[in-house]
Amino acid sequence: MSILTLKSLSKSFGALTVTDDVSLDVMAGEALGIIGPNGAGKSTLFNLIAGNIKPDSGHVLLDGVDVTRASPMERVHAGVGRSFQIPQPFSHLSVFENLMVAAQFGGGHRGAEAECSCMSIIEQTGLGPVANDLSGGLSLLQRKRLELARAMSTSPKLILLDEIAGGLTDGECVALIKTIKSIHAQGTTIIWIEHVLHALNSVVERLMVLNFGKMLMVGDVDEVMNAPAVKEIYLGIEI
């Protein structure tokens, strides 16, 4: 059963086509990685899935329901959680309060139930020591964890992670991978955009390659990584 279906999705900003006829099926419980050079349209694809921007043509289906015209709020309620590439915490709220917003509005939890779910996510993402700290004063790793934790708090079926490992040290990266794996193990579907390939490939089962808005290929991690076209894009090797 596919949880997300994209049907020939296209989006242009003026003369620039950032998403060009992308079609994709993501199965429930799957972990999919999206790679591609800067400006390939990866984040735009997330914005289209999360509803932050509307496509020029094509359709987005969640659990078989067409949500192409649905607002970001409606898609959160339909089970899409997202993290932003540049962390966007509610900076005057604490970590706990950030999560409470997501749990109560996105996850539909109330009162003690919401607190409980937030606390377990705080523990899972290693934010316990800073739970009551204002999120504006967090370190980069903590901000990235908060992005992940806040997206988790909306109780998503599908979670979109946008370059969540970028800018972290190796040690921090390993810890984050562990957390993401544990989220995946709970059955949450993951779509993850990442430049840190070793991090990405240790979690995802499939890779999709975007280039100039077009889907270049999609397939097993090994198959994609060894494809000449991918090497050409990433390493600039003429083949």
Binding site: M73, V101, F105
Partner: peptide, 23 residues
Amino acid sequence: SRMGLGLQAIRDNDEAARSVGVN
């Protein structure tokens, strides 16, 4: 209340608030 927390979230970051289901 829940609504007040939502308001403070909007004040801090409108787009992120929408992305966690706040209207």
